[in-house]
Design a binder for these strands. Structure first.
Length: 592
RNA sequence: GGCCCCGUGGUGUAGCUGGUCUAACACGCAGCCCUGUCAAGGCUGAGAUCGGCGGUUCGAAUCCGCUCGGGGUCGCCA
């Protein structure tokens, strides 16, 4: 059979009736009636029903041999289906292809899991046979969605005057941040490249070079443990702009997302996005990446219970603690069991316990009501706005712990009470992150974002005196409680950059050794600049309504950072190691 | 590394307060019948000793311990 231009199965419509077509695809399903055979032929675009009639004896006989996932070439004619035989649930349901000839291009073993159904299949099996998994329509849909989103991003940024520039994947290791993946250099024995955790330094250098609007769909690598929304290898939209302030970066970013959501998902998204300062987010939502699809704002009860006689609260307050509360509308329906469950959530978040009061018609009911004065209880009512039938929850602890615990409680309550609207997309900016955070283990002060983030101009004087209070010119984009992007206005003044390095405890020599090239570049006319880096995998995951980014990545790693289909990472030949000047030490324990 | 969840024919599940479980159901697979189905239908059949090891018991898929594999999460992720 000679090959003619192929037609995609899922694209055929009633208007194609009478058309001679060549279809190439996989057997999605077969319905063999003995005297008549129907095959659903599937390709990337969808599927169409092919009918084999005994009148075409040769094709009909061959069709009897077809099995699921066989690869076939069908030549035939598109026909309207007989009245009453249409399938309204299928885009191609008005027509079918009457087969005139069939060519079985390849057979298939019985697949290890159903390709033609939506059933949940063990993920390790899916990854081992990823080529079959990717044939499933949900995965095809996800990868197509990803393509369209990335294309929409490129189109948008192109129109906005951005230039897409590639930066190296083999780069110099910089010890800060996440663990680097290292690549040994054969021609420079004993030396290593690192894979980029992000193109951060190169994009800043590009700004110095005058490429004032740069972007890249960049692969990034971080040797850290994997999660549902975290791979050791992932994709970022890396973006940097010169001569801008926060507002410019936020503006172009939110218009970019609005464009993608509109053109790809057909979902209008209002701009500008809501903005919440980091401090405010902790106070009102207990996290720095609040899910704004639901209310349930936290309330500061500290001022109302300042002199409470309740020992647990009293002690917490005496140690500089805070009391954060949450009104659960209609929470009186929650029983002891639910409260216990929430208490567990609070404890997992390091709180010692969870206080609760049921607001009844005339009074508060709780094991601890007796410890509070009428005045305090009315303060509680005023602060939370609790009405009869509601429940009030509270945690007293060091402010950070209280916020974190109540943030976890807020999320748990929303999930358990079904307060999260489906199909909602709530974007929000979190601004003014602190410049520094204390590393709990080492006690050292470390940059919250990265050491090139510009400090808030009003806080410059605090850098040396009270670094933890210095706000950064940084911002995160949050969508439905998931961090989508992170960025900042950068330092472009070599003097200030030195000062920040010094604050981190680096000597001039150390800073020069690590980032000398950047400091040097800044001495040749560095423009003010800033940028952001949205995670593509997460954006697609949320747009697709998936629970894990693995479902929007063609060949992801599992939680053990392995790729089950090819078996990476794998051992290598001794000869390869020798050539690289590497020698493996036996593992400390559990030999072999 | 800690905590939590899961592991039963090819797939998805049931069974799991120990005993006709000689492991059930659906899909898939094989054979036969069937000319308008679309999760096609009907009949017949093959296929798992219940992740592995050890223990408790007269008796273990069911209870206990260890272990392996997978997932979620905390730590980690400038």
């Amino acid at each position: 059979m000679s090959l003619t231009p192929r037609v995609r199965a899922g694209t055929l419509r009633a208007t194609d009736a009478g058309r001679a077509v060549d279809l190439f695809g996989w057997v999605h399903r077969r319905r063999d009636h003995g005297g008549l055979i129907f095959i659903d032929l599937r390709d990337r675009s969808g599927l169409v029903q092919v009918q084999f009639h005994p009148d075409r004896a040769e094709a009909f006989t061959q069709a009897g041999d077809l099995r699921l996932e066989f690869v076939a070439h069908v030549r035939g004619t598109v026909r309207r289906r007989p009245p009453g035989a249409e399938n309204p649930t299928l885009p191609t349901g008005e027509i079918e292809v009457e087969a005139e000839a069939l060519e079985i291009l390849n057979r298939s073993r019985t697949p290890p899991f159903p390709v033609n159904e939506r059933t949940e299949v063990d993920e390790s099996l899916r990854l081992r046979y990823r080529y079959l998994d990717l044939r499933r329509m949900e995965m095809t849909r996800n990868l197509e969605l990803r393509h369209r989103m990335v294309k929409a991003i490129r189109d948008f940024l192109d129109r906005e005057g951005f230039l897409e520039i590639e930066t190296p994947v083999l780069i110099r290791s910089t010890p800060e941040g996440a663990r680097d993946y290292l690549v040994p250099s054969r021609v420079n024995l004993g030396r290593f490249y690192a894979l980029p955790q992000s193109p951060q330094l190169y994009k800043q250098i590009l700004m110095v070079a005058g490429y004032d609007r740069y972007f890249q769909i960049a692969r990034c690598y971080r040797d850290e443990d994997l999660r549902a929304d975290r791979q050791n290898e992932f994709t970022q939209l890396d973006l940097e702009m010169s001569f801008v302030t926060e507002d410019d970066v936020l503006d172009v970013t939110e218009r970019c997302f609005a464009h993608v959501w509109q053109t790809v998902l057909g979902r209008p998204v209002a701009v500008p996005f809501r903005r919440v300062t980091h401090a405010d987010a902790l106070l009102r939502y207990g996290v720095d990446k609040p899910d704004l699809r639901y209310g349930l704002e936290l309330v500061d009860l500290t001022p109302h219970l300042q002199s409470t006689g309740f020992q647990v609260f009293r002690q917490a307050l005496a140690q500089g603690g805070a009391i954060r509360g949450l009104r659960v509308p209609a929470g009186s329906a929650l029983g002891r069991k639910e409260i216990d469950g929430l208490t567990e959530v609070a404890k997992t978040a390091k709180a010692k316990g969870l206080a609760f009061w049921y607001r009844e018609a005339l009074e508060w009911r709780s094991p601890i009501t007796k410890f509070f004065t009428a005045e305090e209880l009315s303060g509680l009512e005023g602060a939370t706005g609790a009405r009869p039938g509601d429940l009030v929850l509270a945690v007293a602890a060091e402010p950070r712990v209280a916020a974190g615990a109540m943030g976890a409680i807020r999320k748990a309550v929303a999930e358990r009470q079904g307060l999260i609207p489906p199909n909602a997309f709530e974007f929000a900016w979190i601004t003014e992150f602190p410049m520094y955070a204390r590393n709990e283990e080492t006690g050292q002060i470390e940059p919250e974002h990265h050491p090139f983030t510009a400090p808030h101009p009003a806080d410059l004087d605090l850098i040396e005196t009270d670094p933890l209070r210095v706000r950064a010119r940084s911002y995160d984009l949050v969508l439905n409680g998931i961090e989508l992007a992170s960025g900042s206005i950068r330092i472009h003044d070599p003097g200030l950059q030195q000062r920040i390095f010094a604050q981190l405890g680096w000597t001039k020599e150390e800073a020069a050794r690590r980032f000398g090239f950047l400091l040097e570049a800044f001495e040749y006319g560095a423009p003010p600049h800033g940028g952001i880096a949205p995670g593509i995998d997460r954006a697609v995951m949320l747009a697709a309504g998936e629970e894990t980014i693995r479902d929007v990545i063609a060949f992801p790693k599992n939680q053990q950072a392995q790729e089950p289909m090819t078996g990476a990472p794998a051992t290598v030949d001794a000869a390869q190691l020798r050539e690289l000047g590497l020698e493996l030490r036996p593992r400390p324990e559990r030999g072999a």
